[in-house]
């Protein structure tokens, strides 16, 4: 028990004394996972919408694949991304392994199916008559998509949170493709593993707490946006 209090104490000490290495690690975690989440939105939302609103041969297998992908084990993603990025691998020419970019790629692979799958689910819960009505009052195709997105924004924000939560907390892929290099690719999760391995449990607890605080802050912000909109929703008469 004393250990946990020591860890909590150390966490606040590290945060408030502005330990530059801790801040750098925290900032890098946010950049990498934020970047990966953003890219996963750019890819996942259109694909999710497409899957929700269209019919094509092979659709059900695609949906099943996306749904399976929502639970992709990060270590497996890490392994495959590593193999692709190895010097001897198909993308070796880019020399990306052990860089933050490689971590963004791996996290994108993890977050994309989550965002695509939840987007699809969000759009499928919309009333199909809504599109017909909107088209009926003369909405253009792009206006239609925008209005549907607005309609589905609560579950869409949930998709953002789930995607971000999935990547900020994963360690397996980041460790493998990033290499946990000090000052280059060390993020909160890999640093926690390292400090635990070193026997510096207080620092490991502190890093874990910082990670929780960071995740909480991001989710609090997103939840705030989500729920504020919820309250302004007019009551049905």
């Amino acid at each position: 028990m004393g250990l946990i209090w020591d860890g909590i104490g150390q966490a606040f000490w590290l945060l408030f004394t502005g330990d530059p290495e801790i801040w750098a690690v925290t900032w890098l975690s946010l950049k990498i996972s934020g970047g990966a989440t953003l890219l996963s939105l750019l890819l996942g939302i259109p694909i999710g919408i497409f899957l929700a609103l269209t019919q094509f041969p092979g659709r059900s297998i695609t949906v099943a694949l996306i749904n399976t992908g929502m639970g992709l084990p990060p270590v497996v993603v890490g392994l495959f991304v590593s193999i692709f990025l190895w010097r001897s691998g198909p993308l070796g020419l880019l020399e990306l392994l052990y860089t933050p970019t490689a971590m963004v790629i791996a996290q994108l692979v993890i977050a994309f199916p989550i965002v695509a799958g939840l987007t699809m689910a969000a759009f499928q819960t919309l009333n199909p008559n809504l599109s017909l009505q909107l088209l009926g009052i003369g909405a253009s195709r792009s206006q239609l998509l925008w209005l549907l997105c607005k309609e589905a924004r609560l579950p869409l924000l949930a998709a953002v949170m789930a995607g971000f939560g999935g990547v900020i907390s994963e360690v397996g892929a980041s460790m493998m493709v990033g290499g946990n290099i000090r000052g280059q690719t060390r993020v909160l999760t890999t640093a926690t593993v390292l400090e635990t391995g070193k026997g510096n449990f207080e620092i490991a607890i502190a890093l874990g707490l910082i990670l929780l605080i960071l995740t909480f802050a991001v989710n609090f912000l997103l939840t705030h946006i989500q729920q504020r909109e919820q309250l302004r929703w007019p009551k049905p008469s």
């Binding site: 946010l30 950049k31 990498i32 934020g34 953003l38 939105l41 953002v160 912000l221 997103l222 946006i225």
Partner: peptide, 9 residues
Amino acid sequence: AALTFLLPV
């Protein structure tokens, strides 16, 4: 706001 928060990449 949600997007710009995720933007610092």
